[in-house]
Design a protein around this nucleic acid. Structure first.
Lengths: 187, 187
DNA sequence: AGCGTTGTTTGACAAAAGTCAAAAAAAGGG
DNA sequence: CCCTTTTTTTGACTTTTGTCAAACAACGCT
């Protein structure tokens, strides 16, 4: 089911709603290793990721990159706090691979919500999905050992494993890269 | 600043808005060690905690209680997913001390949002505050050692430390109770 | 106040995870 | 394709954290 069908089925979109929507999004590409959002800047845009992969990260006190999220094809790329409140972002979002996306600005999104009220609900649902995934993640960090976290990760995200540097997965899981390497050998 | 003043100042409440609001909340008390919300049940209520303290928790595979959140005086007691989506809760919420609260049901809240649209924004703001606190928490679990997590916790929540069993703080921080006891001795 | 229950500390030990440094492997760019 | 840079693996070692069991302390209830 593609995006349009989902909007019609889930949110009762009419043909007009769809036209109001597509007229405010535009396609963009982002080459691998370039930033979608930079720390300190306000997130003015949100993207629907058609292909490729991104990750969000920040630097800890020793200047290590700490990865906080992976964005896969079909998901919404957003820094929730920065976009929703229009405040400077604390994290960077960077393309891991060449990406194709549909982009909308904050202002256009506000317009769209006025024109197509269902978008308010969609926004809420996106926020909620991100909250739930964060809740799962934090429970895992709280209760599982390093190898349990890794095994769960490869079970749930075999696709990410194939395409992302192990050091990013290690930092995402809160494991030292050398330790992760040994965990992988022992499985 | 009390609750009414905050609503007037922050959300532009009128006298009428305030009356619509208070008519839908009612005071309730909950004695220490009794449940505000039970796992498996739909969260039909939300509470503003006037006094006392609560915590949310679930059981892991070895039947240990895993504490996921502490609710202090002045905060909103809610199981976000269960209340917002009206689905069965995965967690319990229990009073740690005798609690006084102002309670509203999901249905009344929907009414209130229709009568006083600012409540939609308040709901969003509450959700967002919970998201941000969860994000901080998960970054801490991801990047800090057990003792760093504990030291940060006592710095940010000295009040909780005084009033809550250490084993709940230990499980909240993802630390074994014996290890926490040794960390405390070493500080 | 007394008693049973629950929570906390401690010791001895084991397991898990991190550190540092070097070597090996893989990836990126001309 | 080669060279440089980055990433991953590995070894030797240290530190951190967990486990189990027992002793001790605090708490809740009658």
């Amino acid at each position: 089911m593609d995006f349009k069908e989902r909007l019609i089925e889930h949110y009762g979109f009419t043909e007009r709603d769809w036209n109001e929507t597509v007229s405010r999004y535009w396609p963009e590409t982002l080459p691998a290793r370039s930033l979608f959002l930079e720390k300190g800047k306000v997130a003015t845009r949100l993207a629907y990721l058609r292909s490729g992969m991104m990750r969000s990260f920040f630097y800890d006190d020793r200047a290590n990159e700490i990865t906080t999220h992976f964005f896969k094809k079909g998901s919404v790329v957003i820094s929730m706090k920065s976009f929703n409140d229009q405040v400077p972002s604390r994290e960077n979002i960077i393309a891991i691979e060449d990406c194709e996306m549909d982009v909308i600005t904050y202002d256009r999104m506000q317009e769209l919500i006025r024109e197509v009220p269902a978008w308010r609900q969609i926004g809420k649902d996106v926020d909620e999905a991100m909250y739930n995934s964060l809740l799962n993640r934090s429970i895992q960090l709280q209760t599982l050992t390093a190898s349990e976290r890794y095994e769960l990760f490869i079970k749930k995200h075999p696709d990410i494993l194939q395409r992302v540097a192990l050091k990013h997965i290690a930092s995402y899981l809160g494991i030292d890269i050398a330790t992760l390497s040994r965990i992988r050998k022992s499985i």
